Simulated assay, not measured.
Amino acid sequence: MSTFSFATVIVAFVVSTYGHDCTKYSLTPSDQSIIDMMKHYLHTSRKADCPVTPSKQDIGVTYVRWGKKTCPEKSDIVYTGQVGGNYYTNKGGGSNWLCLPNDPENGKAYSYSNDGLYGAEYQINSSNNPSGFPASLYDKEVPCSVCRRKGKVSVLMIAGRTSCYKGWKSEYSGFLVSEYKSYNSKDFICMDGDAEPLDNRSSNEEGALFYPVRAKCGSLRCPPYKNNTEVLCAVCTK
């Protein structure tokens, strides 16, 4: 029954109860029960039309913490996993990094030749190791975690800084990394400055490869940037 027709019933009921001469009559328990039912219907029908305002507990943002199996303090972990991506010499396929869960729901095996998802390895050794970055990660697979920060509405990765701007909260900081410049293109991501291996295995299985990025002066203005320096980064929320 629509609100309009229900309101018509209420008017008819009031007229029959009070009379055409506006004389007030006593309501029986049955009459009062009908009125209460009508009030309940109108309240619930109008409430359904009102927008629902999410509580602060329901508000939050998600981000990937690259290189770590845990989330920062005050952030909840959605899931932990390992980094995946396209093979470093493939010219087609995806160009982004993925945080793949450790408990996948796998599809059926098939023979189509588009095998475009591989694990990712650190390609960071003594010759290209950023300052303060763990030196024992070469050829180790890369973990990741998807984190949720309650009460925040924006998340931002800032390349070139380890601190956030005023009003923003740092979730973690580290070094800008991507695929090597002569391989297939990948996103720039912020690798945690305290990165760890997925496990103890180290077998150079290739796949998607992480290299640190350095700044190159020219169209990139120096100053404020400096030539051949490691590029720092921070993930910030607000």
Rank of each mutant, 00 (worst) to 15 (best):
T62M: 03
V235T: 14
Y183Q: 10
G167K: 09
L220W: 10
G84L: 11
T53V: 15
Y79R: 00
C71P: 15
Y112N: 14
N228T: 14
P223F: 01
G132A: 07
F4Q: 06
T229Q: 15
R214E: 06
D103M: 03
C50A: 15
I77N: 01
L220G: 11
A208Y: 05
G193E: 12
K108G: 03
G94Y: 03
S2Q: 05
V235D: 09
K181L: 09
E105D: 08
Y118W: 12
L176I: 07
Y41Q: 14
R65F: 00
G84E: 12
F133W: 04
S111F: 03
D194N: 15
P54H: 13
N184C: 05
W168G: 07
G92Q: 09
P134S: 03
E179I: 07
W66N: 07
C190Q: 00
V64G: 06
G107A: 07
L232K: 11
C144G: 04
L137R: 04
A109V: 10
A48I: 15
C71I: 13
P143Q: 09
H20I: 07
G160C: 03
E141H: 11
P101M: 04
V52T: 12
Y63A: 06
R214V: 09
V11P: 00
Y165T: 15
L209G: 06
C99R: 02
Q32R: 11
A12P: 01
Q123L: 10
I59D: 14
K169V: 06
C147Y: 02
G93F: 04
Y25R: 11
A195E: 04
V9Q: 07
